[in-house]
Nucleic acid binder design. Structure first.
Lengths: 191, 191
DNA sequence: GATTCACTATACAGATCGGTATACTTTTGG
DNA sequence: CCAAAAGTATACCGATCTGTATAGTGAATC
């Protein structure tokens, strides 16, 4: 990727996230990136392609960010689940004050045949798989059920964070998950 | 509200929800409502005003729908909490397959000075207050904490439903809340 | 050292955007 | 019964939208 292309993607990412995809025009993206429209179209071909690369890049960055937190976490399964919430907490503090970019993009991209659609649903499916896998290391016979509960709490925390419903919802979700996992572990031991 | 105005609001609501606010033009709204653009502007004055009334109407309908379910519910506090999830379940089945319209609108309306902004945040604040109040009837000393947890689970269920992450997430959230309330009640009894 | 590549600058095309103007018709309430 | 309100039909406005065309510059590569 050329320097100009990188600047375009950075500007587009910031503008799309802050103002919404349909509300941002290519002229503004080019201007904010300090690039002419011709360069923008030489590199990306269309606005739709910029949207696709924006979401794909965001997805890739999040997965790498999360992997770092998981690698650094205590190997005990409950600690690894909590590490996901810690990662989201750090991610949200850095560059995510308006909630999940995939959820926000989904509000504007309804057509399943849109090339960005599988990126959005793919990340959610990937997160559910991750939670289910982590849950399997805690309570193998209820991995699916626990994974879905973790998914609900995580998504709810991201939305509540974006809408600023109450202070630090991600920390609240983490706390609830901590109690939940203790209960689940006890139950598993008892059985 | 005149018949034409009602048709405009109905068409706008459907189009805004399904395609997004910025993606829908006033010409399309007028055509779908079977109304001329002059009538549309005579009744509403601006597209922004249609957006405001769309969200305000949606908010009002949801509160009335929820009130009906709460009135019909068993008076025991835990049953009333579950009735909220039952209401969301029925609401989503009827007219909400793309998630919460307030969350989706928030993705496109970022400016807090936009006249629709307080409607969005107002509904979320109202829901949190409701959950907190209901939680207070179960565990008075932890009403705030439990209310926020219920809010997270509810928001997460709506998002997961809209993104179709797994089947029937609202029922899953309801199930988890049921277990959670049983535990909380037991704890309260023990103390 | 000519060619390719990445880029700037500017102008333009056709469509669509939100919103208005003019002229006319239908419905309805005091 | 008639005036006001609510509506249709159509044309238009300036701005903005995505995307393209033309012409030229600087640097790197083969």
């Amino acid at each position: 990727m050329t320097p100009a292309a990188r600047r375009v993607l950075e500007a587009a990412a910031r503008l799309f996230y802050e103002r919404g995809i349909h509300a941002v025009g290519v002229d503004l993206i080019a201007a904010e990136a300090g690039v002419t429209k011709k360069t923008l179209y030489d590199r990306f071909g269309s606005k739709e392609q910029i949207v696709v690369e924006y979401l794909a890049d965001r997805d890739e960055r999040w997965r790498a960010f999360l992997a770092q937190h998981l690698d650094a976490a205590h190997p005990a399964p409950p600690a690894r689940v909590l590490a996901v919430f810690d990662a989201s907490h750090a991610w949200a503090a850095e560059n995510n004050s308006k909630g999940c970019s995939m959820v926000n993009a989904h509000a504007e991209i309804s057509d399943p045949s849109h090339p960005a659609y599988p990126i959005i649903t793919g990340q959610k499916k990937w997160m559910l798989d991750l939670f289910t896998h982590l849950a399997g290391d805690i309570s193998p016979d209820r991995a699916g059920h626990l994974g879905r509960t973790l998914m609900l709490l995580h998504e709810g925390a991201l939305v509540a964070h974006g809408l600023n419903v109450f202070p630090d919802p991600i920390a609240h979700a983490r706390e609830h998950v901590q109690g939940l996992l203790a209960t689940t572990r006890d139950t598993a031991v008892k059985q």
